[in-house]
Amino acid sequence: MLENDFPNALQWHPDPIVLDAKVAEAKQKLLNSIKRSIYVFRVDCGGCNGCEIEIFSTITAVFDAERFGIKVVPSPRHADLLIYTGAMTRSMREPALRAYNAAPDPKIVMSYGACGCTGGIFHDNYCVWGGTDPILPVDVYVPGCPPSPPSTIYGFATALGILDQKLHASHNVAPADEQVPIAFPAIPYKVRVAFEREARRMSGYYYGKQIVDEFMLTLTKDTKDALKAADSLIASETDTRKRAVFMDLKALLMSKVVDE
């Protein structure tokens, strides 16, 4: 979707599909009464195929969605539920509508994955509509990049009314004069920065942070002998890669120690 300053009146916007009153009523009835055994057709509207792989791993033996009668069918004519994956590219809008119109009423539409829900990481790309809902009336949103098989099953269960949804919109206002304690006050700031840099250099983002946090927590927990705490952390670590990073951090700590 174009979200820049380009005049809105000059942009073409897809007409949203409005459900017929009769169809809407039938759909509500379907949603309330159908508890299992739905046929699913998936429509890939410009996804990366990650979502497709997760859908197919949902119907394999480990997660086995077919024990609820959920079956992936090869034609929208057989489908009760349409899964739309991908960020809805401009060229896939027509095929998406064709699949929607080919499915018999009443039908349930599921937006699958981050791209299907809102456009995901491609939301401001010039050639996408930003998810399924600018084009089609969506009943259930399954976020994830891609959603794991259990969250897919949860999505089906939510759509069929077996499980209740957990997330709810929330807005809070933080009170004024709230103070946050300084993180790791016992470690000098520059030493902390050196630790964090070294850990990220050794094991990259995300894991580097987790490792350095664990290391610094251990150091600050033992108020008497931090070096001994570091030694016991290294000794107790079974993962050799992680132990190497801990040993490296300890060497760095030793280089910062000054005799008084």
Binding site: C117, T118, D133, V138, D139, V140, Y141, V142, P143, G144, P147, S148, P150, S151, Y154, G155, T158, A159, L163, Q165, K166, L167, H168, A169
Partner: peptide, 11 residues
Amino acid sequence: FELAVMNKDDL
């Protein structure tokens, strides 16, 4: 991982 919702605003 249980994030599926029926209403988009709940996300």
